[in-house]
Design a binder for these strands. Structure first.
Length: 713
DNA sequence: TCAGCGCATGTTTTT
DNA sequence: CATGCGCTGA
């Protein structure tokens, strides 16, 4: 058989990975080393050479975009259709499983998916009903707690309360939250995974069925798997199936949301006898960029170890600009962009990357001033918009009146005189009788326990929902959505709003109908088109990073740059406290992750990488004088070209001569504190009476101290 | 119901 | 600084 289309144009290690024989395989694929290509060609190899039927293959990714790309590239490479192959995100696949086996999973047939905003609101409501003070129990923190536990595979009853009041209370809230979800027939993102894992655990015959079916499992971006995803895969693989994973421990940047690098670090011990293949040849970046990135990442002690190399020339040195302040930094970057554009570079080939989204504003302002079109990635997506969610809340409530999340959202939007008093009464009743708010409303009204005005308003709302319940049989569903929006009075409501956003909102409502009209149900046999649409709205949230090919300069955080590449890359704000971020400063593991983030950012660049830092930065209103990032110091000088524009007093960025704004302390200096003992200055910020220094104490670890009070010597 | 005010808050983000 | 939240009074 002719396998040239699969194997040609692959280098040796890539070919080795693609043709790997039976058994589990870990492919450590450095940035720009052809990771996706290996994955795609591996699938083609399995199907065309090893004659594995397509329906025996399961390929998992993290983002919908990656899943779509994988599907389209496999279709390009192979002649036979890939339709029967399962390709999707962890959440998408888990969702599919739960739809097929909702009964065994203990769900209701029409269960709906909550996004994080829905979840947040629900948690807030629960805290209120438990009469817990949100300043002591911040909903964000509760949400984080619940999601983190679910990501670890833990239900309330599995969590050790440590005989600790705080922990006990959290567990109680978690339990209460679970009950609410179950009553309302809603699941959150983490629940999809946890529930489908339990589905397999509790139904051995079902697990067996899927184990038989998926003899070959492939996972992309394996370093990003969290505990439950890892367990899910482990369970499905069993001891017969073959697992092929691709990842890069050096690009693990999602530890803060539960991803465990250990999953990739321990792969070989967890899957004994598995093979390890390293892809180290980089096809993206020029020599200098690569060597500098390598030099930085080598400072991380816990790595599997890889050294990227390229056949390319050294190319341009990395440019480093020390800006006077953050405005100067933006001005400089945009000036350089103009140079590149004049030389014929495409706008879309240029990216500005930064650590925090707040940094985008300065660059945007400078871009606007120079009339350069740009596009900021991230931010709110279509199906996350308030008005869109309002509209869908009506749709969901009409489908299932017991969906409290939808009820809360729709009941007084637009305002129809159902105020907090009435709602409190409804919530109280619902809680007391463990029923939905819908049912509570009906009962309260019938019981005559409501003020006439409130009763009227509620009746109005009930009628509105009831009247639409049985009308969606023969008209296309987008028309029923359009009708619901109309009858609910959303359009009318936004028309009246005078905050200037009304028109946008109305357009978005129209767009919902439009999206519904164009929607093609991908899970035909499993779901009604309406349910599929609602699931799609939560799971994909719409055009996230669409239209990359727009002719625009690309602005994004370092996180969202992962997986992308650009000829010209700028990374701004390389300053201690910003990058690495101060929130990570006291934890060595998180500092390693920040370093990986830097590595990810640098390896996005193909031809030219420019780094910058500002010597003074206005942040949250006050001025700070951050030291240049430690990562700058980790780049050997031979790869760098320092750029100075305006003559001014500038501080060198090397450790030896860094001065602190408080004047007395230098980076790296040994100091003694009366209470904490001996330590070394790590960084500093602020000036005068608010100047602070960060000190790494031998005994107590890293601390920030205000120079004026600290009494350091 | 809504405007207005004071207060706290301030990473990274996918699903 | 700038935004977003919750509370208050009309």
């Amino acid at each position: 058989m002719d396998v040239s289309h699969i194997l040609d144009e692959l280098n040796e290690p890539q070919r080795e990975a693609v043709t790997a024989s039976d058994g589990n395989c870990l492919v450590l694929a450095g940035a720009g080393s052809g990771k996706t290509r290996v994955l795609i060609h591996r699938m083609a190899w399995l199907i065309e050479v090893e004659q594995v039927p397509v329906w025996n293959i399961l390929a998992v990714t993290f983002t919908n975009k990656a899943a779509r790309e994988m599907r389209s590239r496999i279709d390009e490479l192979m002649t036979s259709p890939s339709g029967a192959m399962w390709v999707g995100t962890f959440h998408g696949l888990a969702h599919r499983l739960l739809r097929s086996h909702w009964k065994e999973a203990g769900l209701s047939q029409g269960f709906q998916i909550m996004d994080s905003d829905d979840q947040f609101r629900l948690i807030k409501r629960i805290l209120k009903s438990l009469e817990l003070d949100d300043s002591r129990w911040p909903p964000r923190q509760v949400q984080w707690f619940i999601n983190a536990r679910k990501d670890e595979g833990l239900r309330p009853q599995h969590i050790d309360d440590c005989d600790d009041f705080f922990q006990k209370q959290m567990i109680r809230i978690y339990q209460e939250y679970e009950d609410a979800c179950n009553r309302g027939g809603v699941v959150d993102f983490a629940e999809l995974l946890l529930r489908s894992h339990e589905l397999w655990l509790n139904n051995p015959q079902l697990l067996e069925h899927y184990r038989k079916r998926f003899s070959h499992i492939l996972v992309d971006e394996f370093q990003d798997t969290n505990s439950i995803q890892y367990a899910w895969i482990r369970l499905l693989v069993g001891n017969r199936n073959q697992l092929f994973v691709v990842g890069d421990d050096d690009q693990s940047i999602y530890g803060w949301r539960g991803a465990r690098v250990e999953n990739i670090l321990n792969f070989q011990s967890d899957y004994p006898g598995s093979s390890l293949i390293k892809l180290e040849q980089n096809y993206r970046s020029s020599g200098n960029i690569l060597k500098a990135a390598n030099a930085i990442i080598e400072h991380n002690p816990t790595r599997l170890g890889k050294n990227l190399w390229t056949e390319d020339d050294a190319g341009e040195p990395i440019h480093l600009y020390s800006a006077f302040n953050e405005v100067d930094e933006a001005r400089f970057v945009i000036g350089r962009i103009q140079d590149h554009l004049e030389q014929g570079m495409q706008r879309s080939g240029i990216a500005i990357l930064y650590r925090t989204s707040a940094q985008s504003r300065l660059f945007e302002e400078a871009l606007i001033q120079s009339s350069i079109p740009y596009r900021v990635y991230g931010g709110m997506r279509f199906f996350e918009r308030a008005e869109v969610k309002d509209a869908l809340a009506y749709v969901r409530l009409i489908k299932n009146q017991h969906d409290d999340v939808a009820f809360e959202r729709a009941v007084n939007q637009p305002p129809r005189g159902i105020g907090p008093r009435t709602l409190d009464a409804i919530r109280l009743h619902a809680r007391e009788f463990a029923c939905s708010m819908w049912q509570a409303s009906v009962e309260l009204k019938q019981g005559g326990a409501m003020q006439a005005r409130a009763a009227n308003a509620i009746q109005h709302f009930i009628d509105l929902i009831e009247e639409n319940r049985h009308t969606d049989e023969d008209i296309p569903f987008h028309e029923s959505i359009s009708r619901i929006i109309e009858i609910a009075g959303l359009r009318e409501h936004f028309k009246k709003s005078r905050d200037g956003k009304g028109q946008d909102r109305i357009e978005n409502l129209d767009e919902v109908v439009n999206a519904a009209r164009q929607f093609i149900n991908p899970e035909d046999e499993l779901l009604s088109v309406l349910d599929a649409f609602l699931a799609h709205a939560s799971l994909e949230a719409g055009e996230n990073q669409g239209q990359e090919h727009e002719e625009c300069v690309q602005l994004m955080t370092l996180h969202s740059a992962k997986g992308l590449e650009f000829p010209i890359v700028f990374i701004g704000g390389l300053e201690e406290g910003l990058f690495p971020h101060r929130m990570s400063a006291d934890d060595p593991e998180r500092l390693e992750e920040e370093r990986r983030l830097c590595y990810v950012g640098m390896t996005r660049a193909m031809q030219q990488l420019t780094l910058s830092h500002a010597e003074s930065r206005r942040l949250h209103g006050s001025e700070s004088y951050p030291l240049p990032s430690r990562y700058l110091r980790e780049i050997p000088h031979e790869y760098l070209l320092e750029i100075r524009s305006t003559p001014r007093i500038s501080r060198p960025y090397t450790a030896a001569s860094q001065t602190n704004t408080a004047g007395e302390f230098q980076l790296g200096q040994q100091v003694t504190h009366p209470k904490f003992g001996e330590g070394v200055i790590l960084s500093s910020e602020g000036e005068g009476s608010t100047a602070r220094v960060q000190v790494n104490f031998a005994e107590t670890g890293v601390k920030w101290l205000v120079v004026n009070y600290a009494n350091l010597s």
